[in-house]
Amino acid sequence: MSHAPGSYYLPNPSAWPIVGSIGLFTLLLGFVLFLHDGGTGPWLMVFGAAVTVFMLFGWFGTVARESESGLYNTEVGVSYRISMMWFIFSEVMFFGGFFGALLYIRQLSVPWLADTDLLWPGFTGGWPTAGPEGAVPIGPDTPISNPGQFSTIGAWGLPFWNTLILLTSSVTCTIAHHALKEDKRMKLIIWLAITVALGFIFLVLQGAEYMHAYQDLGLTLGTGVYGSTFFMLTGFHGAHVTIGAIVLLVILVRVLRGHFTPENHFAFEAGAWYWHFVDTVWVGLFIFVYIL
């Protein structure tokens, strides 16, 4: 539409949303077919994912170009900031559901299951547990000797170092933000690059931890309710770290291309907020999944 300088920017009609819908639909339909051994499923998934990625590049690219060409006034920036805050709130609630499930299982349903002797006589409950028909837990970080056992990952080994890595990355991210506000580009690039690197190091270590769990500890997604909560919580967190790291990587590329000014850098802020959010979730995971 017509756009008067200085007024709230209202975009022209856009095809990106429908492209996104088609991508998402194809991806999910392919997933369903894949789950039911439909031969076309994986192909549909690849196609849908490709279309979705294409949409993300196209849509965010459009937004970045509009932003860099100065179409957005302060009010548009405020809108983006408010929306990012509420988006992160929705993510908090998503993780809240899984944390709530963990709390309910540990504090209520497993003790109840142990209290009733009707269904599974002799089941004593406790935590960790894979349930009355699941594998038997042995101490943390102990390689198992038979398939009827599983072992958990102790908090003070790799998870502790991962905690330090993520917390450090939050600090480096903030340093980069301050550098951006002071218009010190070199400092910004270095600290942002360190942040991204720490994110990917975290993911590599997390991958190594998963390998260790599956190969040596007998701890898998199917290890009863302990395995379910452990892998779903850490897995979704890992997925979010992946997204956050990619976002920061894109921001780094934009910085290298000379985007952003000390006053105008919403995308950087959104990425940084998201990064602090995934770090905070990790602290919750470290306490409730690993330590307690």
């Binding site: 789950l35 929705s90 993510e91 609630m93 998503f94 809240g96 559901g97 899984f98 709530g100 499930a101 309910y104 299982i105 209520l108 349903s109 497993v110 109840w112 299951l113 269904l119 599974w120 547990t129 894979a130 349930g131 009355p132 028909e133 699941g134 898998t220 997604l221 199917g222 009863g224 309710v225 302990y226 395995g227 379910s228 909560t229 892998f231 779903m232």
Partner: peptide, 28 residues
């Protein structure tokens, strides 16, 4: 998002061997 999480748990219970809602695995 909480609802999305709930149906995601359904999905993994159905296809990926989790035990959120299965008492045999300690779920409910």
């Amino acid at each position: 998002p909480v609802f999305a999480g709930a149906v995601t748990m359904l999905l993994t219970d159905r296809h990926f061997g989790t035990a959120f809602f299965n008492p045999a695995g300690g779920g409910d």
